[in-house]
Write a protein that binds this DNA or RNA. Sequence first.
DNA 1: TATTGTTATACTCTATAACTATA
DNA 2: TATAGTTATAGAGTATAACAATA
Lengths: 173, 173
Amino acid sequence: MRRLEGMADPGELQATRDEGLHDLGWALGAVLRTWLKATSHAVDDLPGGPRGYQVLSMATGGPCRTQAAMAERIGVDRTVMTHLIDDLEAAGLVERRPDPSDRRARRVELTPRGRSRYAELASRIDDVERAVLSGLDDASVGELRDLLLRAASALDDQPIDACDVAMEFQLDR
Amino acid sequence: MRRLEGMADPGELQATRDEGLHDLGWALGAVLRTWLKATSHAVDDLPGGPRGYQVLSMATGGPCRTQAAMAERIGVDRTVMTHLIDDLEAAGLVERRPDPSDRRARRVELTPRGRSRYAELASRIDDVERAVLSGLDDASVGELRDLLLRAASALDDQPIDACDVAMEFQLDR
DNA sequence: TATTGTTATACTCTATAACTATA
DNA sequence: TATAGTTATAGAGTATAACAATA
């Protein structure tokens, strides 16, 4: 039941690798908290803050075009997404358009103004993210990003059902 | 301004490495959300849920022994930490003891019951974390954990001031 | 019958302010 | 004067329920 003390030395981290994933949740939280704080400032007056930025990002392309798909991707309730898009639309950055393949759904599309705003913010966010990960060298930053994207994408494809995992324990013991 | 489409193919990820850190925030959020959902079930009736578990974890050792230090480490307000420890103490898992080096502060220590409860939960959490990262092979899981711990520890040592980063932009442009 | 999106409402969670004790 | 901890309160954020339209 040994714990990390200094925690900054890669050698020490290495030594505990086989004992478990200790502090994975803490590390995820610490990095994400910093990301949120830093990006909040970087997007300053954008409606919705970092979340508004993520909506703009999804609206530039990718598989998530409708409100429901966007909401699920960034982990917010569909009612929250409604307000988020209300605000972005009021700011003239996005528009709701009917989805030709499903008349219940709405496609969220960038206005020209939204497109240029996104380009500007994307550059800022990139700088912020590099600052957040400034404790790592460039190669490590790339590796971390790839690993996170692979892990997150796998969850997207095959979501972990918390109940299933809980069941496994009970079978194990 | 190219965006990822499929997003699951490492080759494609590689190709965009030099173009920016796109979707780093999304990936962090997606993995952490799953971690929270899964660990919430794994600790079921523990007061405070995953956060309560993190408090127990800190109380087993490491540099954060007082409420203030613990609160800062896991990113909650000190008032929240008060309630968190109230509940854990009521459940007989931790005790507040005077800090010999600072009579304002309180050291949070595990009771024998808290110690055995933690040992049990730590094993579950470890299984859950492996399930959350089941999209990666074992070697990648270890790499991801090390990189996250290094990034988070660096933030701990030298916190990124969001305002400073924001200032840099204004100087750059 | 299930899903998309909207609205209004209720709830949870978090931060704020004020206070005591100590540094 | 600043910090650790507690308490009560106010505020922000979130989920819930009900609804209309469509699948």
